[in-house]
Design a protein around this nucleic acid. Sequence first.
DNA 1: CCTAGCTATTTTTTT
DNA 2: AATAGCTAGG
Length: 812
Amino acid sequence: MSQFDEHDAFEAAAVPPTIPLSQRAVAARPAPYMDDLNPAQRAAVEALDGPVLMLAGAGTGKTKALTSRIVHLMRMGRARPNEILAVTFTNKAAREMKERVGRLLGEAAEGMPWMGTFHSLSVKILRRHAELAGLKSNFTILDTDDQIRLLKQLIVAANIDEKRWPARMLAGMIDGWKNRALTPDRVPAAEAGGYNNRGTEIYEQYQERLRTLNAVDFGDLLLHVVTIFQKHGDVLAQYQRWLKYILVDEYQDTNICQYLWLRLLAQGHRNICCVGDDDQSIYGWRGAEVGNILRFEKDFPGAVVIKLEQNYRSTPHILAAASGVIAGNAGRLGKTLWTEAEVGEKVRLIGHWDGDEEARWTGEEIEALQRGTRGMRKYGPEDMAILVRASHQMRAFEDRFLTIGMPYRVIGGPRFYERQEIRDAMAYFRLAVSPEDDLAFERVVNLPKRGLGDKAQADIQRMARLSGMSLLEGARELVASGGIGGKGAGQLRGFVEGIDRWHGLTLQTVPVIGDDDVIEGVAAFGTAPKTMDHVRLAETILEESGYTAMWQNDKTPEAPGRLENLKELVKALEQFDNLQGFLEHVSLIMENETEEALEKVSIMTLHAAKGLEFPVVFLPGWEDGLFPSQRSMDESGLKGLEEERRLAYVGITRAEEVCTVSFASNRRVYGQWQSQLPSRFIDELPPAHVEVLTPPGLYGGGYGAAATFGASAFDERVGKADVYNSPGWRRMQDRSATRPVAQPREARGVVIDATAVSAFAEGDRVFHQKFGYGLVIGIEGDKLEVDFSKAGVKRVVAGFVVDADAVDDVPF
DNA sequence: CCTAGCTATTTTTTT
DNA sequence: AATAGCTAGG
């Protein structure tokens, strides 16, 4: 239908397409980028028109198919680079796509302005039509900190107990609403409870406040665009005309708002290709809707579904184990991964006494794999990764790796731009660029301490509100009118003058010029430079404000690191033309440059591991309550459990050659020791593809320690008769029986007898696995106070200690 | 206004 | 166990 008219119209208007429309059939001779595609990938690349769903299982080469498709679109003359919309979730994915398209084209993928993340593309659109959302096009993008501070103010102003109804929580709710494209007037009444039934009211006030601040939060970026598209058909039509082909990566992670965003744009040409894997949807907790991908064929009638099922990553055992686990989920689109790879190792399963023991064993196993003493090839540290469910699990591994000197890197964790000192510095920059940025003003008026406490700040607020000015103007007024006394007055005057001066300098900064010395020279004469490059300006701001000095005078151990980070921040500025450009960039790029992978074992969460692969993968902590996470199951029931199961699937499919699942019988949870049960996902691992390893230190009886599994806790949580009837447990026993003592090759350590709780008295000489020999100097319940000869006085659980005399009987 | 000490809290994470 | 955020006292 009209779809084809549009094409013809384009062909006529286009800058000469590489291949004229009339010769398309002839042109279908093999193109180099098609050569190494398998039939399914090729089908996905060639199905150019209409809606296409590319169901791409883990490791099936979806990025290759996606990038080849983009190149194919251009080579076939279907679209110019600027007529293709390619959306990803992360900047990293966008960058990779750009690179790979460029490589296939044999030139830089310049001129693909519509390749980016949902958020960066939305900013681009929103800047252009800001007035339709009641904003100016230079709106600022708030970070989470600002968002929460703003909400806190509103909650307090509404006379709501901020403790019972924390701002954080409301921020989460508002985020959730925005993910579902719900403006305040559309929030269902059923969800409007809480906050004394004023949740939506405050949401509305918040939106109002954002508008007056000329600011948006992350959720707004998308929601405003969707609202504009819905209300202004002409604007939408323009983009629909423009963007002939739409490609979406990780479609299973889209939320409702993103879905609407895409659907509105796709209604024009109806050429939308979504790539995803329903089995890898692991972001439901932040609004992603698996339903979007499950519903695709309904949403886009006539859709072609292409499954990519040949896996190029993992061995058959690993794939079979992953398939076995994911089969437990209902309502899947269903894929069967297959591979031509060698059979390889089975998935290895091992239980440990506790988390520390698990970390200890893992460390030794990594060393063994490095040496190649496991009957496999040798692996470097960079080939191996530990994937945990929750970040607190990382610590045990870090501790252990530090003591054995195993190099590691942690992926994820606090991001550079989220650090306090970086945000503070950014607030100063924001203030210099736009002095009316009240949130930035609030953040740093009293940082470093300027003697401007709650009272002074309240006065500034009142003054500003009185005459409808920004806080800076309010402060200026307050100083002028003498409304502020003593020491604070001079400080505030200085602060205001500083901002004025810096702002003046931003207006006349010059681009960085190659020869730094010229500027240095100017500064050295003691006369304030008339012009200044923005890097120098940033330094000046941090100096003059006293912010740098604040950290220099700080004696806490983290102060030097913070100064280091500030230096890095200033250095990062060099790559931008001005402060404005930098601020824009930072608000959208919240990611960390991850440390070099060289010669290091990677530690990260399962979420962070999506999209990555490693020859050797360790999956520790497979215990009910930890993984699957209790909280996830409590909050989202079966849906939550299924998402956890997909997480398990993601974890296993990260492994190329060796995958090791482990669990511990005891684990410290919030400082309390708890008995743990093997994860139900362990029961779901198909036995034929699993090999059970026996941990060193637990001889013969194997899992004797499991006698201490809390049967009652088990009853409560899972509702089964007792521990020994747990299928996972029974199977463990069976398997250990058929395969006794699998790997004591490098057995080390001590048989730990957990029943020996009361077996100690003050004055006993004991041995501890980690701390060595010591003398019992106190007993409190099941805990002992022990003076270790090497480690000093420690409190340890009695079960972790053996009579020193018994140690000699234990083989090392 | 500042800081020491207390209490409540504790997943996963991108933009 | 560790930490963040808050209250009370200086």
